[in-house]
């Protein structure tokens, strides 16, 4: 198992947002996390990425205990994410957005950066090349010098995924990647997600409300309701699960 979540829970004051939650993601797997609004899906993402510290339970990633580690440390270990409401570096160029992600693997220091000696030239040239190649995968090469904030919505979503991949993750968390997209954009996104999985050899865990996407590309699903797991298994099974249907539609 690449990611193992053991009985995690978090309490905000008197509210138990997530409790006794267990899940796992294997290498090269696309896993979906679904549930009605307010079920605690994004809270699980925030627990996995260290935005919140779980009040109980353990998170094991790549044989390391990452419970309570800081967000940036968890990212360095190999979990990258996108956000439900897009969070780009809006006033920076598209390529600079991606370059920030590569920063953690670069070595030249502050002094070399200011006086442009040593590793500076070599690393910056390599970085530019790498960033352009990454943008090319997402069809954003033409807009490399554009301001990220000026991109149309669909491309902003793509750029966010590109930036997350730039950090060199083993596990990619996508928070509602298809939100606000029309059916043809969603279909394109599905292709991209498959491509990302194969090309970058990452496992993907995604939250999504668009059932056509979830049922199509996820190999396994976890269903959350009121902070606890009510079902898990392959999409076909989940589709016919009585608990899931009543959670979504009511009794």
């Amino acid at each position: 198992m690449l990611l193992e979540v053991n009985d995690i829970g978090i309490t905000f004051g008197g509210l138990r947002a997530v409790m006794g939650f267990n899940m796992g993601v294997d290498k090269d797997e696309i896993v979906g996390l679904i549930g009605p609004n307010g079920a605690g899906k994004t809270t699980v993402f925030n627990l996995l990425t260290g935005v919140y510290t779980p009040t109980e339970g353990k998170i094991i990633f790549d044989q390391k205990d990452i419970t309570g580690k800081k967000t940036n440390v968890i990212n360095n270990l190999g979990i990258a994410r996108t956000f439900q409401n897009i969070r780009l570096f809006k006033s920076m160029s598209v390529i600079d957005n991606v370059k920030v992600a590569y920063n953690q693997n670069m070595k030249y220091n502050e002094l070399q950066g200011v006086f442009k000696f040593g590793l500076y030239k070599k690393e910056e040239a390599e970085l530019h090349e790498k960033a352009l190649n990454l943008l090319d995968v997402f069809g954003l090469k033409g807009e490399a010098e554009e301001n990220a904030g000026n991109l149309p919505y669909g491309k902003q979503r793509k750029l966010e995924i590109a930036r997350a991949l730039g950090t060199g993750p083993k596990l990619l968390l996508l928070d509602e990647p298809a939100a606000g997209m029309n059916p043809s954009e969603t279909a394109e996104l599905m292709e991209i997600i498959r491509l990302v999985k194969d090309k970058f050899r990452v496992s993907i865990l995604l939250i999504e409300h668009d059932m056509s996407l979830v049922m199509n590309i996820c190999e396994r699903l976890y269903v959350l309701d009121y902070g606890s797991l009510i079902a898990s298994g392959p999409p076909e099974e989940i589709k016919n699960n009585q608990d899931v249907i009543s959670a979504y539609l009511g009794e």
Partner: peptide, 20 residues
């Protein structure tokens, strides 16, 4: 690269932290 990172903190601190 350091300056780039500093600008990213200005634009979106949460995303910057999530980018490592």
């Amino acid at each position: 690269r350091h300056g780039r990172v500093i600008k990213s903190i200005r634009d979106n601190e949460i995303a910057s932290e999530a980018s490592g």
